[in-house]
Design a binder for these strands. Sequence first.
DNA 1: ACCTGAACACCGTTCAAGT
DNA 2: ACCTGAACACCGTTCAAGT
Lengths: 227, 227
Amino acid sequence: MPKAKAKPPRREEALSRERIIDAAIELLDDEGEDGLTFRALAGRLVTGSGALYWHIQNKDELLIAATDVVVDRALAEVSHDAKPRKAIHAIALGVFETIDAHPWAAAQLVRIPSPMAMLKIFERIGRQVEALGVTRRRRFTAATVLSSYIIGESRQNAINGRLSTPLPNRTEFLEQAAARWQALDANEFPFTRNVATQLQQHDDRVEFLAGIDLILTGIAASSTSSR
Amino acid sequence: MPKAKAKPPRREEALSRERIIDAAIELLDDEGEDGLTFRALAGRLVTGSGALYWHIQNKDELLIAATDVVVDRALAEVSHDAKPRKAIHAIALGVFETIDAHPWAAAQLVRIPSPMAMLKIFERIGRQVEALGVTRRRRFTAATVLSSYIIGESRQNAINGRLSTPLPNRTEFLEQAAARWQALDANEFPFTRNVATQLQQHDDRVEFLAGIDLILTGIAASSTSSR
DNA sequence: ACCTGAACACCGTTCAAGT
DNA sequence: ACCTGAACACCGTTCAAGT
């Protein structure tokens, strides 16, 4: 028997705030929000759990930092030079897809006070609202409505992989949701049951953008009206 | 010295699911989301923590049930017989004020799958959307956009009493938020800094309803347009 | 049937001790 | 300066034992 034993896992680089955040994102993606514990994270980084506190303040800060990273990446891919409506679609879809890939980020975006990631989305949307020629007084409202819808709806649409036992794909996810709505009491939920059929058929991204366009129509109509 | 000792607190009624939920709401309102623990709740109800599990499944179910109760109360106060726009305003303000009084409920409303409280809000909004004469195909989109905005914005506006040290009132809350925005980097956040002034001045409810009306304008314009 | 409360299996966070 | 890992002060949840 040779002297070589099974090598213990070795840390290749020194610990750093950046590496910790990257590992946290991986862990969150793999195991969900509950999967992120300091012990599990330290295990992946081959260190002690206490070591992490040298680089980050606490779990909250880590979650917010992880969200900032994934949102920054998403926004970096959105080109700046489209016309306002197209640009807003692109920002919206960028956020939509990031939250779909990292469902845990949605909860962080709506924290109070707003994390930087949220402010960056708001800023990018706001500039396009300005470019649409919205009057000064209405810009805040318009940007708020758009941002609120983008984040809220992205969250609702994100498949949380670990919720009910394996959700193979989006189609089944939608079917389950529709079935739940169809099962509601007919007297108490006539409207919801009625639109459940649409829920089953719809394409997420198309439906999501339809909501954006509805708001954009409202913005355009408000700006041209006399009120 | 008389025999009478300090009476231990006595439970006046038997434990019940209802009493547990009511006590949980009180505890959540008093101490915030972190304040709701089974030990603290059992303390208030003068019982053992394990006893609660005879009446409720677990903490998640308790939070959802508590949310259902406060939302039901809010919706019960909203009259059914107004014209659609006024009715939507009333539903929106009802939710807004309930979340302001019970900020912990907002997190529950956006859970997946949607809790009953969320579906009830959606249903009430949806019926009014129908009453507005929105075409069948657009009803789902319209109700979704409205619900998403109502819940998202109510959450953002709710004062979470325990966040930073005592937040005396809403004015100071808004000032703090505006100050944070003003402190942002001028090159990276021109839009956000610019609207920060508005944030400082605005009346929450008025601004909130302005967003609702923006969406309603979009709904009206979409329905009458040819597309 | 309902309640009790100790026990279990976790957490986030701290900190003396190491290098 | 940075890392280690045991220890602390909590959690939610379970369950044998009581009434």
